[in-house]
Amino acid sequence: MSDSFTLAGRSALVTGAGGGIGAAVATAYAAAGAVVLVTDRDKDAAAAVADRIVAAGGRAQAAALDVTNADQATTAVEQAADLGGGTLNIVVNNAGVIAPAMFPKMTPEKFRFVLDVHVGGTFTVTQAALPHLPDDGTGRVINVTSAAGLVGTIGQVNYGAAKAGIIGLTKSFAKELARRKITANAVAPLAATNMTSTLRTDEKLSETTLARIPLGRWASPDEIAGTFVFFASDAAAYITGQVLPVDGGMVI
């Protein structure tokens, strides 16, 4: 059964992997046997993650990637495919940003910025990867959404709209790419990262948020990464178009 979860012989590209969940996913993929291209807008942060993977005995390289830039996306997926001997098996669209404001004060610029990175970036990177994804049943597109995209949020209508858009993209990807035996799924995680720092450090917000989590605590990024290994592996070969919350029970 353990062989079902191995990623040996496969290549992966992870966006927004300079820290947080992305770094944990890249590290977990390498530990499962994949060769990984660690990408981030901050190339130094990506390189630090790749260096740690290599030091631990894994295989990884780093690249700068602004997911809204089509030329950079093409260059990155080609580098990742080269690492895999011409094939890119796994694409993880994790890159994200926040620009919070209550709806009456949300500017068009903030709204478009968050949608461009989340929805536009997922579209751009996945489309660039398509020529390199195999038709042998090992092709995986794994997107990152959020509870905000499932049930809405307060103070971040741009983020909620973007994460809901990713769910729509995921389901549409799944239907179109099934003819090539490529699966597309999404994970809706909740973890202690820089993006959730305000929720965790503000006393009132922290208390309110923890009250909504049945397990009563924040996950570490490492606890989230196993779900991404599962979706990338043969164990999930017959799952596509699904959204899996990994959030301590926040969305039930």
Rank of each mutant, 00 (worst) to 15 (best):
A80L: 07
A80S: 08
D82S: 14
D82K: 15
G85C: 10
G86Y: 08
V91D: 03
N94I: 07
G96S: 08
P100N: 04
P104L: 03
K105S: 04
K105A: 09
E109W: 10
K110C: 00
K110P: 01
F113C: 01
V114I: 06
L115S: 08
D116K: 04
T126A: 13
A128P: 02
A129V: 08
L133R: 02
L133E: 04
D135L: 00
D136V: 12
D136T: 10
G139I: 11
G139V: 13
R140A: 11
V141S: 07
T145E: 09
S146G: 05
A147F: 00
A148G: 03
L150G: 07
V151G: 00
G152W: 00
G152L: 04
T153F: 00
T153K: 02
A162T: 00
K163I: 01
A164R: 08
T170G: 07
K175T: 14
K175I: 09
E176Q: 12
E176K: 08
N185Q: 13
N185D: 14
A188D: 06
P189S: 12
L190S: 14
T193P: 03
T196K: 12
T196P: 06
T198F: 14
T201C: 05
L205C: 03
E207F: 00
T209I: 07
L210R: 11
A211F: 04
G216K: 06
